[in-house]
C-alpha cells in the first residue's frame, strides 16, 4: 500500500505560502539505473543533508568575505568572531535576561492577539451584519504598520513592556482575525445542513462544525502571527529601548561591539526558526485529520 503525503491541497489557498514548506520527499525509491545521472544522484541526498550543507556554505562565505578583504572586517567580522562573541554572550547573565524579556514580550503579545483575534473572528464571522459592518474598518486598520504606532505607544505607555505588547498585539492580531474570519466563512454547506438536520443547537454547531473548520485557518494565522510578533518584539525593543534582545543589539552597535551585535542578530534569527518549528509541530498535532497533514489510506 502506498502512503501518500499530501501537500497543500484543500488548505486555505492564498494563506499558506507553499514556498516555505519543504518539498515532499520522493514517495518511493527510484529504481537505480546502471549509471545514475547527476540529477538522480542529487535526489538521493536527503533534504536535511542539503539544508545543513546550505548553512555550512553560507557560514563559509561569511567567514571568507572579510578574510579575503572583499568587505571591511570592521563592519562584517568573520563568522568565527561572531561565534566567539556568541560564546561570551551565552556565559553572561545579562544576555539570558534579555533573551527571556524578548521571549516574554513575544509570548504575551502573541497570546493576547490569538485569543482576541479568535474570539472576535468567531463572533464577527458568525453574524453577517457584523461582518459586513466591520469589513471596511478592518481593511483600513489592518495595513497600518505597527511601527507607526511607536510614538503613540511611548506617549501613552512609556518605554516598558506595555509599549512592546501594544505593538506586538496590534501586528499579530490581524493575521489571526482575518484567518478566523475566512475559516468561519468556509464552513461546508453540507456539513452545516447535516448539523442543522440533526437538531444541533447553535452552540453545538459552533463547537462541532464551525470551530474544527476554522482550526486549519487559525493555525495558519497563528504561524504568521508568531513570526510577526517576534519581528515586532525585537523592533520595538530596538527602537523604544525597552529591555530585550532588540535594545541589546542597539547597545552593542552604539558601543562599537560589532561581533556582539552580529551574535545577537544570530540569536534573534535562531529564535525565529524555533518559533516556526514550534508552530508547525503544533499545526501537525492539532490538524492530524486535515488534508494537509493526514496520510490517506488509499489513493
Amino acid at each position: 500500500m502506498r502512503v501518500h503525503q499530501r501537500a497543500d491541497t484543500g488548505r486555505p489557498p492564498a494563506l499558506s505560502p507553499a514556498a516555505d514548506r519543504p518539498p515532499d520527499p520522493p514517495a518511493t525509491a527510484v529504481p537505480a539505473p546502471a549509471a545514475p545521472s547527476a540529477a538522480a544522484r542529487l535526489r538521493a541526498v536527503p533534504d536535511a543533508a542539503l539544508g545543513v550543507l546550505g548553512i555550512v556554505l553560507f557560514a563559509a562565505v561569511l567567514e571568507l568575505l572579510p578574510r579575503l578583504g572583499a568587505v571591511p572586517a570592521k563592519y562584517l567580522p568573520p563568522f568565527s568572531e561572531m561565534l566567539g562573541a556568541l560564546g561570551d554572550e551565552l556565559g553572561s547573565g545579562a544576555f539570558w535576561t534579555a533573551l527571556l524579556d524578548t521571549v516574554e514580550g513575544w509570548a504575551y503579545g502573541l497570546a493576547i492577539a490569538v485569543v482576541a483575534g479568535t474570539a472576535l473572528g468567531l463572533v464577527i464571522g458568525s453574524v453577517e451584519v457584523l461582518r459586513k459592518a466591520t469589513a471596511s474598518t478592518i481593511e483600513f486598520l489592518r495595513p497600518i504598520p505597527s511601527v507607526a504606532l511607536i510614538p503613540l505607544a511611548v506617549l501613552v505607555l512609556g518605554t516598558g513592556l506595555g509599549s512592546t505588547l501594544l505593538l506586538v498585539v496590534y501586528a499579530a492580531f490581524w493575521p489571526v482575525l482575518l484567518q478566523v474570519l475566512g475559516g468561519v466563512r468556509d464552513v461546508d454547506p453540507v456539513a452545516r445542513d447535516t448539523a442543522v438536520g440533526y437538531g444541533f443547537s447553535p452552540w453545538a454547531r459552533l463547537r462541532h462544525v464551525v470551530w474544527p473548520t476554522t482550526l486549519p485557518y487559525l493555525m495558519t494565522g497563528l504561524r504568521l502571527a508568531a513570526s510577526v510578533a517576534l519581528i515586532l518584539t525585537v523592533s520595538s525593543q530596538l527602537i523604544i529601548g525597552s529591555p530585550g534582545l532588540g535594545s541589546e543589539i542597539a547597545r552593542a552597535q552604539s558601543s562599537n561591539a560589532i561581533p556582539r551585535m552580529y551574535a545577537l542578530v544570530l540569536v534573534a534569527g535562531a529564535l525565529g526558526v524555533c518559533v516556526n518549528v514550534l508552530a508547525r509541530a503544533l499545526e501537525r498535532r492539532v490538524l492530524s485529520w486535515h488534508t494537509s497533514v493526514r496520510t490517506e489510506a488509499r489513493a
Binding site: D188, V190, A191, D193, T194, H208, V209, P212, L215, W289, H290, T291
Partner: peptide, 9 residues
C-alpha cells in the same frame, strides 16, 4: 456528498 457530510475531524 458523504465526504462533506461526515466530519473529518
Amino acid at each position: 456528498e458523504y465526504g462533506r457530510s461526515l466530519f473529518p475531524w
